[in-house]
Design a protein around this nucleic acid. Structure first.
Lengths: 366, 366
DNA sequence: AGGAACGTTGACAGCGCTACCAGCAACGAC
DNA sequence: GTCGTTGCTGGTAGCGCTGTCAACGTTCCT
């Protein structure tokens, strides 16, 4: 009877055990591995816990068990729509599990990422989700040495640290360009912002596709390190036009830029797709609502987050996936903005319903 | 010498203390209240910690001190742009502090919020940020009873639980309508989605302004419980037009809807603002880039999040703000989409509205 | 029947840190 | 000189839980 009972009605495991008529350790087991208890004790502990409104003390649990039930998530941006979809998937998957999400923002800096990684690892997380495959050597070493499962998301590549889920931005960009060529467009510009590694790989895909077609010209590429925005799309497009007035299509590294290009075309009274075709990337919701509807490359962001968290939790609990690297693929969603060249110069003003009819069409991939 | 040293080179406070030649408790104090140490010991502990690469064990700290350094954040949506800006502010403010953010998504359900609140409170957070002022009675009681600072964000109202930061959605909507009236628009429709409490209060503001002008008609209001989207903006506007073909303006409860209305106008070849004026809400980035540029009500979302977290941390550390309720106000950003009915007049600069916080900006561009 | 194997339960000893209080030196007030 | 007072330091005793291992009863096998 060493310990005095805590004054306020604070419910500890000991209280639950007492009410249930079992030892504290048995009650403890109930919460971690109910199957290990006999049915009789299990129900007794269960009802005792419910009656007292017991909530386990996570700090004590973490201290005693030498591990936490925290999943660390490192993403480069909180405001980018792409990541908010991924995050939603992660949070949805973690809900109902015992794990909680600890989120940190690397702001597209791999040095910041390294710093945060060190911080996270020191707290022995149950698992880790990191963005992309471009880490510092030091970060990579820490990840390799970490004794928890790790999922890299957003893209796939060689040498996964552990698990990996994403798609090939390179292939996706190539598919977008292939689509434009199929529609008869030849002089295709590239507009990109931020130029993080994934955007860079989209650019690489664009370059390779253009070179394959014998159409590559460095002057067709306009990029900036500035963070992306709709306004920026218009500005970059303006630059592109000043350099190469006779382009017939623009591949935008993301949808915000594509929307900016569309507005800039409207401002300049350039017909889309009559004079210039537009293709975006990610297929955000507004792409299907725009006039004309905007072609984009659909990426499965929500699913990516959800699957990543699910894989991670499974791995934490010892159920490692048969497939540690998962390619979620992409789809080129063909819409009005990239339709064949010969169409008249007015944008197709069609019945509201017709716009979304073009959805579908898996491409070279997936 | 009771305890054996942990086998692997795990650095505990005891190791730091030993190297520094002080007792563990003195080393502990160094991390919590360095000023309490003599300068000599302070520097000794500091260099010892650095030399060993000591990282405190947060679980042990939380267990021993009976409190955590976690700030709980409850928001209704992870994908809504509005909240991602707020979140960014919160994360930015928490960075560099000792506090970490624990985020949960209520999905616009106050029952879910209550459940999450119970979960959070059980872990004794250092502070709490909750969205809005509409909680269940039970939630409110828990918040009142919580022994940590609490900030309600996104809006202001009577009876703050503790601290509060936001603005009046009601006044903001009234200001938007006042602006439309100043520009000569009379038959103003309302388009709203999701209809969460804050959107509802925007609707209330709209209704009151319209009634003041003697122009209110229930048929001018089109709403749905469906989550918002650009596409939905077009659909709701279509409904509105079918009911009231001769409206001359639309006030949209958010910018996504406004963009959808703009596209729908384009699809139907309705001139904006010639035939129909459009006003949105929140002033997302794309509003200034659209063609025509779209008028909106600017809200200080990033600042709201940042200030909320800063106030909260200050309160946790005993520096309570002199002003527990902070009204961040709003601004009607006047752009082309709402300019005066006659085509030759340019957007006017006006100081409209009831709220003294409100400042109308000149503009058409940002 | 005897023993092994299994399933179930409990006792004990911490996990790494901090709250609390006691101790000690240095200093000023009387 | 004595007494408090202040500033700094250390010892003790947990915080609430779980890992480990031992002990027990039961079942199954030979």
């Amino acid at each position: 009877m060493g310990r005095k009972r805590t004054k306020s009605g604070k419910i500890r495991l000991a209280e639950v055990a007492e009410l249930a008529g079992v030892s504290p350790i048995t009650a403890s087991r109930f919460f971690r591995n109910p199957e290990a208890l006999s049915v009789a004790k299990r129900t007794r502990v269960e009802s005792a816990a419910k009656e007292l409104g017991y909530v386990p003390n996570l700090a004590a649990r973490a201290l005693a068990s030498q591990r936490t039930e925290v999943i660390g998530v490192l993403i480069p941006s909180l405001t980018n729509n792409v990541f908010s979809d991924v995050l939603r998937g992660i949070y949805d998957a973690s809900e109902g599990s015992r794990y909680s999400i600890q989120l940190s923002n690397t702001r597209y800096s791999i040095l910041q990422e390294e710093k945060l990684l060190r911080l996270f690892l020191a707290q022995k997380p149950a698992g880790l989700i990191v963005t992309g495959i471009d880490q510092t050597a030091e970060s990579r070493a820490m990840l390799q040495a970490a004794d928890c499962p790790i999922v890299q998301i957003m893209e796939i590549g060689p040498d996964p640290v552990d698990m990996m889920i994403g798609f090939s931005h390179y292939d996706a960009a190539r598919a977008a360009i292939a689509h434009l060529f199929e529609q008869g467009h030849r002089k295709v510009g590239f507009v990109g912002a931020r130029m993080d590694p994934r955007v860079q790989r989209r650019l690489d895909g664009y370059v390779s596709a253009m070179k394959d077609a014998g159409s590559f010209d460095q002057r067709l590429v306009v990029t900036t390190a500035t963070p992306t925005s709709v306004t920026l799309g218009g500005a970059l497009f303006t630059d592109l036009l000043a350099r190469e007035p006779d382009i017939d299509a623009v591949f935008c590294a993301n949808d915000d830029l594509a929307l900016g290009v569309l507005f800039e075309c409207r401002r300049r009274e350039i017909a889309v797709p009559g004079q210039i075709a537009i293709v975006g990337f990610n297929d955000l919701e507004f792409m299907a609502a725009a006039v004309p509807t905007l072609t984009s490359v659909r990426t499965n962001r929500y699913e990516m987050g959800k699957t990543a968290a699910t894989m991670l939790i499974d791995a934490i609990e010892g159920r490692r996936p048969e497939q540690p690297v998962l390619d979620l693929g992409f789809k080129v969603i063909e819409r009005q903005s990239s339709s064949a060249r010969r169409s008249d110069s007015r944008p197709a003003v069609s019945a509201a319903g017709a716009a979304n009819k073009m959805i579908a069409l898996p491409s070279s991939h997936d």
